[in-house]
């Protein structure tokens, strides 16, 4: 028996990168997936990838910073599958500016997406998890939450906020058997670091990581599947760092 058989999982930002790897990993374990992404073409491609190997998935345009859009994501999930078991808050944005020059608009956009978006998606899914007295919420943070980010103060703040939010939500939902946890990648081989670093810089960082390489998106799929499965059922409020030992916490 696959470990996520008959589970319905929503993964935000699953059109690419880490979200995509987590969605594919959960699909391999038998979950039906909702691929929620701003980029519909990417979401559709991931849906196709899952279906080609016999899995079940739907693709949804979703803007997690917009309450209407988030409600639409939950409604569409319930219409299609009748329930939801797992929410993975993965979607996020990562523009860079020094604080001195940071426009309020950019600050608001990062917080609204990364932190408020995590709140909105969690809030929307909670009544349905309550109703079945089970469920998993898994959110993605970043090593930047621990170490700060040069020219990414808004990003670091939003990602640290996700940890505090998740611990609090874990306390609220624990009596209902619903777990809330966080996964923390290190630098990962996705589009994100390429926004502000050269290929050489990115791979040079791998040399400084104890396990000797930067992360691959697939490195995050195992921890996500574990937390979503029965095996992770007594773990809540925790942050699992899957970062090659880059930060030990």
């Amino acid at each position: 028996m696959k470990r996520l058989e008959n589970r319905i999982a929503i993964v935000t930002g699953a059109g690419q990168g880490i979200g995509k790897a987590i969605a594919l990993g959960m699909a391999r374990e038998g979950a039906a997936l909702v691929i929620a992404d701003l980029n519909e073409a990417n979401a559709g491609a991931v849906k196709g990838e899952i279906e080609r190997v016999g899995g079940k998935a739907s693709a949804l345009y979703t803007d997690i910073s917009n309450e209407e859009s988030v409600r639409g994501m939950i409604d569409a999930t319930l219409n299609e599958y009748g329930r939801v078991d797992v929410l993975v808050n993965n979607a996020g944005i990562f523009p860079t500016s020094p604080v001195e020059a940071m426009q309020e608009e950019e600050w608001d956009r990062v917080i609204s997406t990364n932190l408020v978006g995590t709140f909105l998606c969690s809030k929307a899914v909670v009544p349905h998890l309550f109703a079945q007295c089970s469920g998993r919420i898994i959110s993605l943070t970043s090593g930047r939450a621990f170490q700060g980010a040069r020219h990414g103060a808004h990003y670091a703040a939003s990602k640290a906020g996700i940890i505090g939010f998740s611990k609090s939500l874990a306390l609220e939902l624990a009596p209902y058997g619903i777990t809330v946890n966080v996964i923390c990648p290190g630098i990962t081989d996705t589009a994100q670091p390429r926004g502000h670093q050269t290929e050489e810089q990115i791979y040079a960082q791998g040399q400084r990581i104890p396990l000797g390489r930067i992360g691959q998106p697939e490195d995050l799929a195992g921890p996500a599947v574990f937390l979503a499965s029965d095996a992770g059922g007594f773990i809540t409020g925790q942050t699992i760092l899957a970062n090659g030992g880059g930060i030990m916490w």
Binding site: G222, F226, A231, L241, G244
Partner: peptide, 29 residues
């Protein structure tokens, strides 16, 4: 035991130096 099996497995292949708390939310890392 499930947490041990997870950390032992390839699924945790990029996890090292970490402490996994299994405590029902008693304390958070």
């Amino acid at each position: 035991a499930e947490a041990v099996a997870f950390l032992a497995s390839e699924e945790a292949g990029y996890i090292t130096g970490q402490t996994l708390h299994v405590n029902g939310g008693m304390i958070f890392n």
